[in-house]
Amino acid sequence: MALKRNVSFFTGLKYKGGGPMWAWILHRTSGLTMVLFVGLHISAGFLTQQFGSDVGIWINTIYENWIFQLALFFLVIFHAINGLRITILDLVPALLEYQREAIWLEWLVFIPIYGLVLFVVLKSTLGA
């Protein structure tokens, strides 16, 4: 049995955790989606390599779609930078005092990197 929390889903939505809460939610969801993507990509590679299967090619074609790539890069880059923040704060607990500032710093690092991804992916999509 899970813990009993007398909080409804909609009350939960009103919880104002701010930056750290959203980072936590995004870290979890992006991690779970990446497990799914990587698992499917390995399976697709196996199916294509061993049987020349259409299913494998079909999955990898989705992966090459530009909308999918933008979403995937968002998840991967966010997860990587957020994971680095967690690791650094765990190694140097004195920095925990500035954990809200750490979230802002994280987005400051994220935005230019993702901007570069947006530029490259959109340029090759629109250029083709």
Binding site: M1, R28, M34, V35
Partner: peptide
Amino acid sequence: GINGLRSVVEDYMG
């Protein structure tokens, strides 16, 4: 990845 899946799942398990 799999351990991440484990820790998410076990957060909702008693």
